[in-house]
Amino acid sequence: MGVHVPDGFFNAPTSVATGLIAAGAVGFSLQRANRELRETGPALAGLTAAFVFAVQMVNFPVGAGTSGHLLGGALAAALVGPWTAVLVMSTVLLVQGLLFADGGLTALGTNITLMGLVTVLVGYFLTRALLKVMPRRVGSVVPAATVGALVSVPVAALAFTGLYSIGGAVDIPLAKLATAMVGWHILVGIGEAVITATVLSAVVATRPDLVYAARHLQQDLVLVDADGNSSTVSPDRPIGAQPAGRSLGVGIAVTLVVAGGLSLFASAHPDGLEFVGGKLGFDGAAKDSAVAGSPLADYGVHGIGNTQVSGALAGIIGVLVTIVVGLAIAKLASLRASKAS
């Protein structure tokens, strides 16, 4: 993605369905974010939206002469929390659609669902889950959110493929579409991950208190009075912070359900998944795919007979591999960062 689905790309029922999903998600987020918004004011969310909008205009090279840009869902979620982030991303898409004629009005629901909902939720819950198993300090949020960002993009691409299998206007082999989309978006996701990591490092370095996903990891403040006596106080109560005690499972589960479930959808389509070793057409796009020659090519696992099950498995394995690769990159990045400082 990185681009907005235009009008007429999906059939009317799909547009209506995603519209309802988006409206429900925005309504739910409004309710959940209500307390934060009352304390911090709508200005903060508006400014974050303006920030995401501005940053989406910065392109980075992906390869093969093309470029991608930040989606920002996972980043926004780490910075302002998942519910405000859903509102922020929806606002960005609404302004792009209404003020700049970018993205169709009937496709608004689809765009909010893909870029506002899937990226935010996958990014955030994965980040929180990883924070559970990482050292308890604010800096841990950088590698955690990096993985969240990396995974969120291909998962959104998978969601796009899932929608296409339901409401796409033309029958094209979904295996090819999924492979091309996910392969391509792993590359875009790497760019997303790098930018997310660098942005978060900068924020952690200057205003660690601003990182929503790490507010529970903040340290106490030391106050010194006019006579030089010092006392320790806890910082302002984190607004709307998540209660601790959610397990690693939740984050991974959300991701896997999305990935596996959508692959199942994809494979349930009459055209089904064809799992053959990379000889199929779709030449132009599939060659760019990083996984075209891998065992996951065409999004089915070799040696498993049932196409639906194998499709879902492939989706899940793909995401797991992405997580592992992401963790490795994050580890490397934090090693290099600590060497540099």
Binding site: P208, D209, Q219, V222, L223, D236
Partner: peptide, 14 residues
């Protein structure tokens, strides 16, 4: 006396 949430104390008795 007042300190900002990032720990910086700005006022020391005014």
């Amino acid at each position: 006396m007042f300190a900002y949430p990032d720990g910086r104390q700005a006022l020391f008795g005014v």
